[in-house]
Simulated scan of single mutants.
Amino acid sequence: QQLGTIEASLKSNSVDAFRNDGEHHYSIKEIKPESQIPALFDKEILISLSDSDHDVTQIQNSFLSIVLTANVQFDNKFDDYEEAYKDGTVLFIGLKSASQVIREYTIYHRGRTIEGTLQNDSTTEQFIQNTVKPRSEKNNRNHIHSLYENTHKYDTSACGPYLTMKNIENAIRDQLSVPYSMPIRFRLSIPLGDILVFSGFTDYPNSLFGDLKIQFKINPNAFVFPQVNPIISMAKY
């Protein structure tokens, strides 16, 4: 990616605006992942979270940005669905919280596993943590948390794409065998503070943050498939 693209992504997901004004300073460095990217959902992904050239002073405002590509499968083509309603019938495909897409993870510090960070059921862990997270933290950033009412309002905080019945029909129209597949692609933003092991990192000095790495797997079973409120979606389309 070009630096401008990375910088724009940082600004769109940050809580406080980044600035270089003499008192504050930030710089950008791209670090290549150690595992193969893109990766299948059953493969482990290993990426660096910090670098020795940078002091991490706002880990609570840091995030993972993940682009997912998947095939949604259907067992019929909705031929009997009335044409007048196909644009206004909308399916949301995504996650309740972006952090729930991580199935399992391990955190490494300077090449060694941090004790107690081998988590084999991260999806459940993140679900429990998000039940106690303040509501104000769930709807103020893009692609992080899908609150029920925000999903029906097509809010940018929802983490997942919207598909109209017309979109689905056009994608699978010429396919001959069941299941019919429709490719989708969307972005998730996972605040590091939403991962339980990082929620207490702000209590420690920055010197502990050197050479942090996370190894994780994607959970394909964490997705939800609700229909958007028909009254609202019909009004929109």
Score class of each variant (00 low, 15 high):
residue 23 E to Q: 13
residue 211 D to V: 04
residue 81 Y to M: 15
residue 235 A to D: 12
residue 178 V to T: 11
residue 73 Q to T: 14
residue 162 Y to R: 09
residue 32 K to T: 13
residue 137 E to W: 03
residue 229 N to A: 09
residue 140 N to H: 11
residue 115 E to P: 04
residue 217 K to L: 09
residue 172 I to L: 10
residue 235 A to Y: 13
residue 185 R to M: 10
residue 22 G to S: 11
residue 189 S to R: 08
residue 87 D to N: 15
residue 73 Q to M: 10
residue 228 V to H: 00
residue 213 K to I: 00
residue 164 T to W: 06
residue 20 N to K: 09
residue 1 Q to Y: 09
residue 174 D to I: 01
residue 137 E to I: 06
residue 55 D to N: 13
residue 113 T to Q: 11
residue 69 T to W: 03
residue 185 R to Q: 12
residue 140 N to W: 06
residue 236 K to A: 08
residue 93 I to K: 03
residue 139 N to K: 05
residue 38 P to W: 07
residue 222 A to Q: 00
residue 112 R to L: 06
residue 67 V to W: 12
residue 234 M to H: 09
residue 80 D to P: 06
residue 58 Q to D: 12
residue 22 G to V: 02
residue 158 A to Y: 02
residue 212 L to V: 03
residue 101 V to D: 00
residue 44 E to H: 05
residue 165 M to N: 02
residue 112 R to C: 07
residue 22 G to A: 06
residue 211 D to P: 03
residue 69 T to R: 05
residue 10 L to I: 15
residue 200 G to C: 08
residue 54 H to K: 07
residue 57 T to S: 13
residue 81 Y to I: 11
residue 64 L to C: 04
residue 55 D to G: 11
residue 185 R to F: 05
residue 230 P to E: 05
residue 230 P to D: 04
residue 52 S to V: 15
residue 16 D to L: 15
residue 219 N to K: 00
residue 105 Y to W: 03
residue 107 I to D: 00
residue 159 C to M: 07
residue 198 F to G: 02
residue 166 K to A: 11
residue 149 E to P: 00
residue 58 Q to A: 13
residue 80 D to A: 13
residue 233 S to E: 05
residue 213 K to W: 00
residue 210 G to H: 13
residue 236 K to P: 07
residue 117 T to D: 06
residue 130 N to K: 06
residue 137 E to Q: 14
residue 221 N to I: 04
residue 128 I to H: 11
residue 208 L to V: 08
residue 226 P to T: 09
residue 44 E to V: 05
residue 228 V to K: 00
residue 189 S to L: 08
residue 35 S to I: 03
residue 140 N to I: 10
residue 4 G to N: 15
residue 129 Q to D: 13
residue 22 G to T: 02
residue 28 I to W: 05
residue 56 V to F: 08
residue 237 Y to C: 06
residue 230 P to F: 02
residue 38 P to K: 04
residue 131 T to F: 10
residue 60 Q to W: 08
residue 143 H to W: 07
residue 189 S to N: 15
residue 83 E to G: 05
residue 192 L to K: 00
residue 124 T to L: 14
residue 108 Y to K: 03
residue 157 S to G: 05
residue 3 L to G: 13
residue 47 I to Y: 04
residue 80 D to Y: 14
residue 233 S to V: 07
residue 230 P to Y: 08
residue 117 T to N: 01
residue 178 V to Y: 05
residue 177 S to I: 15
residue 237 Y to G: 04
residue 210 G to F: 07
residue 165 M to L: 12
residue 46 L to G: 03
residue 112 R to V: 10
residue 156 T to C: 11
residue 103 R to L: 08
residue 139 N to A: 13
residue 38 P to T: 03
residue 49 L to Y: 12
residue 29 K to Y: 10
residue 142 N to I: 13
residue 157 S to M: 01
residue 9 S to K: 09
residue 164 T to C: 06
residue 68 L to V: 12
residue 84 A to R: 15
residue 157 S to T: 07
residue 188 L to A: 07
residue 231 I to P: 07
residue 47 I to F: 09
residue 14 S to Y: 05
residue 152 H to T: 02
residue 224 V to H: 10
residue 209 F to W: 03
residue 182 M to C: 10
residue 28 I to C: 06
residue 190 I to A: 02
residue 45 I to E: 04
